[in-house]
Amino acid sequence: MGNNSIREKISAANGRALNVYFTAGYPTIKSIAELIRSLEDAGADLIELGMPYSDPLADGITIQNSSKIALENGLNLKILFEHIAEARKTTSIPIIMMGYFNQLLQFGVEDFLKLAANNGVAGMIIPDLPMNIYERDYKSLFEKYDLSISFLISPMTSDERIKQADRLSSGFIYVVSQSSITGKKGEISEAQKSYFDRIESMNLKSPRLIGFGIHDRKSFDTACTYSDGAIVGSAFIRALANSEDISKTTHSFIQTIK
């Protein structure tokens, strides 16, 4: 497990790695393990498991609402780790936990990383953890527990910071497709394509996955032509909203994307 599992998966996917986000505890707490299993069976390459937060600043209304419901369902981090452990008995797809830094801080960063590692989590995405603070205070802990981290870059990120993200990311570089919060629909624009081109031409050493606004086959295919794969989040949450059968919904959703 750890760093390598994510990169191995991405490289095995031949430029079409599909990373699917869902909010843990949505639609129900019981569905966490079922979703992990279904996503693995249906052919997702990676899972980004959202830790629901009361104030998700980088998220649009879809993920906000799913987080709210998950918290109302009574999910907390302790329960979440129990369900991840349950899912790990029968699955091996790399799980990347995504959450806001305050959640780790209150839990205790080292306690959190230790539990994550012990329960077979491969890495973390923490959008509001600054790179320099990670490097100064937490990098050695991530290494100690063999957990990867993936940093975000956006169209406004300078080349210098992109290189810093490349150096520090031990998972992948999360290429945020546009300056926006999550959940935007619509086609990928020419401006976005030239931004993807610019990143591609930098010859970074880390694999790159494009996320934010990837919602159907067309946007997934376009993203893959400029990267090693893509991340789908809000679109999957929207599909789950009306689901009567989690496994069926997951299989048919993945088929519409990949």
Partner: peptide
């Protein structure tokens, strides 16, 4: 204090 912000706000 400090600045714990998502990358999308970093430039600003």
């Amino acid at each position: 204090g400090g600045a714990y912000i998502p990358e999308m706000l970093h430039a600003n």
